[in-house]
């Protein structure tokens, strides 16, 4: 009986190392998108890992990232229930985070890149959260549409539609604000 328990424990540890530890970086990026704050993101990933460890016996070994993202979504929902509404991501923080523009003095091409990046960052932060989160999960965090659907709790087609509409708004904003895409290099 004791031997069985030890074996089971070893299997859990081994499964955790195999399925969870390799996903830490992705989990942290997604958590940053969901929470908007580095410190909260770290807490959320730790909470996710703890929950994953507790339920790893029930995991079938298929699609560990999707499994972990679902756990993270539930953990985040639970976290929000306990939190004050003003802690929801502040667009200004996102702008500051995204717009730490490097110094491109003297290099016209890099100045143009810097302008584009700053405006993309500004518009991204101004998007409604529904679109912003979808764009961030795909274009910043590098998730697939199916994985992003797991995080947001919606079908992948819905994520795709939100991402396309979000990018389309960013593009319109850039054009309205004088970014010229007819040049060879943007």
């Amino acid at each position: 009986m004791v031997i069985d328990a030890t074996m089971k424990d070893q299997e859990r540890k081994s499964a955790f190392s195999m399925y969870v530890l390799p996903e830490i970086e992705v989990l942290l990026r997604v958590a940053k998108t969901l929470t908007g704050r580095h410190s909260d993101a770290e807490d959320l990933v730790q909470d996710t890992m703890l929950r994953a460890f507790r339920s790893i016996d029930r995991f079938d070994g298929k699609h560990p990232r999707a499994w972990l993202l679902t756990i993270m979504r539930n953990a985040e929902i639970n976290r929000h229930r306990k939190r004050r509404p003003e802690l929801i991501k502040d667009p200004e923080t996102t702008v500051a985070m995204l717009s730490n523009e490097p110094d491109h003095k003297g290099d016209p091409e890099r100045v143009a890149d810097g302008m584009l990046d700053a405006r993309v960052a500004h518009m991204l932060a101004s998007l409604p959260p529904l679109f912003r989160n979808a764009v961030e999960l795909i274009d910043l965090d590098g998730l697939s549409y199916v994985e992003a659907g797991e995080v947001l709790g919606v079908p992948s087609g819905t994520v795709m539609s939100r991402v396309h509409r979000g990018r389309s708004r960013i593009r319109k904003y850039l054009i309205d604000n004088g970014i010229d895409f007819t040049k060879d290099e943007v």
Binding site: R29, D139, D141, R171
Partner: peptide, 21 residues
């Protein structure tokens, strides 16, 4: 081209906190 530029701009903003990892 414009969508590609937007995607590249967004991807260039990925900021991995190595210490946190």
């Amino acid at each position: 081209d414009s969508y590609l530029a937007i995607k590249r701009s967004l991807a260039s903003r990925v900021d991995v906190d190595v210490d946190a990892v």
